[in-house]
Design a protein around this nucleic acid. Structure first.
Length: 537
DNA sequence: CACACCTGTCATCTG
DNA sequence: TACAGATGACAGGTG
C-alpha cells in the first residue's frame, strides 16, 4: 500500500505539473487524502463548479476509449496523454481548427486594489504554477497575470479567485486571434483584458478567438469559463470589433486600465476616450453578425440577448447600452451562448458582410464597403445626408424632428430621412416579430411535447390501475370463496358461494349476505317497456 | 431549376 | 394627428 501510495503521489505530482503547464490548478492534497476520489478542481465560476477543464468531457469522446472512472492508473495514463497533446498543441496555430468563438474584446477595468494584490500573488505558494504558465512563443504569462480581485471570501476565496485567473490564462493561452494578414497570434491576459501580444493589435480587423479543440465540449467549456471569469456589464462586456483605422488605439485601453475606474463610471470614461466616429462605426458595424457565420451568429445573438437581459433586438437599445447601463452582476452565459437562435439581433446583422475573417486590402475593403452598403446607406450618401442610417434610426424623435427642421434639408432629403427612419424601425420590428413568432412556435412545440408526455404517463397509470384493480378483485373473490367454504349453515352444510357473498359494512364489520340473483332477462316486460306502456295509457 | 429559408420592405392596424 | 410598434404579405437573395 505504501508503495502504491508513493507511486501515485509521484504520478500525481507529475500530473499536477502538467496541469499547471496549461493553467489548471489541481487540489492534490485532497486527492491524496482520499485515495480513490476523483480530481477536484476548484472553480468559482458562476455556471458550474467543476466544469472548467475539458478533460472530463474529452474522456471517452475524443480518444474513443472508455475507462472505468475509479481506475486511477488508467485515468492518470490517459489524462497525461491528453495533457501532453494539449501542451503540444499550444503555439501551433495550424492545429487550431475552425470552431471560432465570437470576436469580442473582453474588457474589464482593473482596480487599484487589484494592482496592490498583484504582488501578493507572485509571492504566493502558487509561484511554481505561475512560472510554468508559459506559452510556446516564450511569452511569460506571469507578466500578464491579472491582479487578483479584492478578497471577499477569506483565504478560500482568494484561492478560488486565483483559480479563476489560472483558468483565464488557460483559456487565453489556447486562444488565437487572426490579424489582417490572416496570421494567428496568441492572446495574453493582461490586466483583466484580453490583449493580443503583437503590435498588430491596433490593426486588428477581426478578433477571432481560435479554440484549440474541435470538440464542441471543449469550446463550450472554454467559452463558458471565459464568460464566467470575465463577467462583463452589458456595455463593457462586448466591445465591438475595431475597424481598420478606427482609432481604437491600444493606448486607450491602457489608459483605461491605468485609471482604475469603478465599473459604474467605466463606460463614460471609456466613451470620453473614444473617438465619436469610432462609436458610430461600432454602431454601423453593428457588432459581429455581419462577420460571423451562422453558428457564430447564433451564439453572438444569444450572447447579446443574455448580456442585455432583454428580448428586444433593437439596435437602439444596443447602442444605448454603451452609454447607460445600470449595475450589473456576473451573468452565467453558459445557457445563452449555445442556444441556437438563428435570428440575430439587428445591431449584429447590418449588411457589412465584408468585415469578416478574410484579410483584405484597403482597396478591397473600400470596394466591399461600397458594394455592401445598404440601399438606404447608398441613398443617404447620394443625397449627402450628414447622418448614418443608424443615427437616423436611433435618434429620439425630438432630435429627429430638430434635425429635419434645423438642417435646411430639401423636401427630397426630408422624405428620404423619414423613409430611412421608418424602414429602419420597421426592420427592427420585423426582426423582433419574427423572433417572437419563432419563440412562440418553440414554446408551443415544447408544450405539445410536455402534454404528450403527460398523456402517456396518465395512460400508463390508467393501465396499471386497471391491472391492479383486476388483481385485487380476483383476490377478493378467492378470499370470499375461502371464507364461505369455512362457514356452515344451520344444517351444518358449507355455504354455497353462489348463494351468499361477503360485504364489508360501514362499521368495518364483514357480514354475510345472500347473493342477489341476476335478473333473468326473459320475455317479460322490462322497466322501459312499462314506462312506454304507462305513457300510452 | 425547384424549394425552403432568411431578410428587408410595404401596407395596415393598434395603442 | 403623429408616431412607434406589431404583423401579414410579398419580393429578392441564398444555400
Amino acid at each position: 500500500m505504501q508503495f502504491a501510495k508513493k507511486y501515485l503521489t509521484e504520478g500525481l505530482i507529475q500530473l499536477t505539473i502538467l496541469l499547471s503547464l496549461i493553467g489548471v490548478r489541481v487540489d492534490i492534497d485532497g486527492y491524496l487524502n482520499e485515495y480513490y476520489t476523483p480530481l477536484i478542481e476548484i472553480n468559482l465560476g458562476p455556471s458550474s463548479a467543476y466544469t472548467q477543464t475539458p478533460f472530463h468531457s474529452l474522456r471517452d469522446t475524443l480518444d474513443g476509449y472508455t475507462v472505468h472512472p475509479k481506475c486511477p492508473e488508467l485515468d492518470y495514463f490517459f489524462a497525461s496523454r491528453r495533457l501532453l497533446d494539449e501542451v503540444r498543441s499550444l503555439g501551433s496555430p495550424r492545429r487550431f481548427p475552425t470552431p471560432q468563438l465570437n470576436a469580442w474584446l473582453v474588457h474589464q477595468v482593473s482596480s487599484a486594489t487589484d494592482k496592490a494584490e498583484c504582488g501578493q500573488l507572485s509571492h504566493s505558494s502558487d509561484d511554481t504554477e505561475l512560472q510554468s504558465t508559459q506559452d510556446e512563443e516564450g511569452s511569460d504569462a506571469r507578466e500578464h497575470l491579472p491582479p487578483p480581485p479584492p478578497d471577499s471570501g477569506g483565504h478560500e476565496g482568494t484561492v478560488m479567485k486565483s483559480m479563476n485567473r489560472y483558468k483565464c490564462i488557460d483559456i487565453v493561452s489556447r486562444c488565437r486571434y487572426r490579424d489582417l494578414n490572416g496570421y494567428c497570434h496568441p492572446l495574453m491576459h493582461c490586466g483583466q483584458m484580453l490583449t493580443p501580444v503583437t503590435d498588430l493589435y491596433p490593426l486588428c480587423r477581426t478578433w477571432t478567438l481560435w479554440s484549440t479543440r474541435v470538440s464542441q465540449s471543449w469550446t463550450q467549456t472554454s467559452w463558458r469559463t471565459l464568460s464566467c471569469l470575465t463577467p462583463q456589464p452589458p456595455s463593457t462586456a462586448l466591445v465591438p470589433l475595431p475597424r481598420p483605422g478606427g482609432g481604437l488605439d491600444e493606448a486607450v485601453f491602457e489608459h483605461i486600465n491605468q485609471l482604475g475606474l469603478g465599473l459604474d463610471s467605466m463606460d463614460h470614461q471609456l466613451l470620453n476616450c473614444l473617438d465619436p466616429q469610432l462609436l458610430e462605426d461600432f454602431d454601423s458595424d453593428s457588432g459581429l453578425s455581419l462577420e460571423s457565420s451562422s453558428s457564430d451568429l447564433s451564439s453572438s445573438s444569444s450572447l447579446c440577448e443574455d448580456e442585455c437581459g432583454a428580448t428586444g433586438y433593437s439596435s437602439e437599445a444596443d447602442s444605448k447600452s454603451l452609454l447607460d447601463h445600470g449595475p450589473w452582476s456576473p451573468v452565467d452565459l453558459s445557457e445563452g451562448v449555445w442556444h441556437d437562435h438563428s435570428y440575430a439581433s439587428p445591431p449584429l446583422t447590418y449588411p457589412h458582410k465584408g468585415i469578416k475573417e478574410e484579410p483584405m486590402s484597403d482597396d478591397e475593403g473600400s470596394r466591399l464597403d461600397d458594394r455592401e452598403l445598404s440601399r438606404d446607406e447608398l441613398r443617404a450618401r447620394a443625397m449627402c445626408l450628414p447622418f448614418s442610417v443608424l443615427q437616423i434610426v436611433n435618434m429620439p424623435v425630438e432630435e429627429f424632428l430638430d434635425v429635419l427642421e434645423s438642417h435646411g434639408f430639401t423636401p427630397d432629403q426630408v422624405t428620404l430621412l423619414r423613409d430611412i427612419r421608418r424602414r429602419g424601425k420597421n426592420k427592427l420590428a420585423a426582426q423582433n416579430c419574427r423572433k417572437r413568432k419563432l419563440d412562440a412556435i418553440t414554446g408551443l412545440q415544447e408544450e405539445v411535447a410536455r402534454l404528450q408526455a403527460q398523456r402517456d404517463r396518465l395512460l400508463r397509470d390508467k393501465r396499471l390501475t386497471a391491472k391492479t384493480m383486476c388483481a385485487v378483485g380476483q383476490q377478493i373473490q378467492q378470499l370470499t370463496r375461502d371464507v364461505l367454504s369455512r362457514l356452515r349453515d344451520p344444517l351444518g352444510q358449507p355455504l354455497n358461494p353462489d348463494r351468499y357473498s361477503l360485504q364489508c359494512g360501514a362499521n368495518g364489520k364483514v357480514v354475510l349476505v345472500p347473493a342477489r340473483r341476476p335478473t333473468v332477462s326473459g320475455p317479460g316486460p322490462n322497466k322501459t317497456d312499462k314506462r312506454k306502456k304507462g305513457k300510452k295509457q
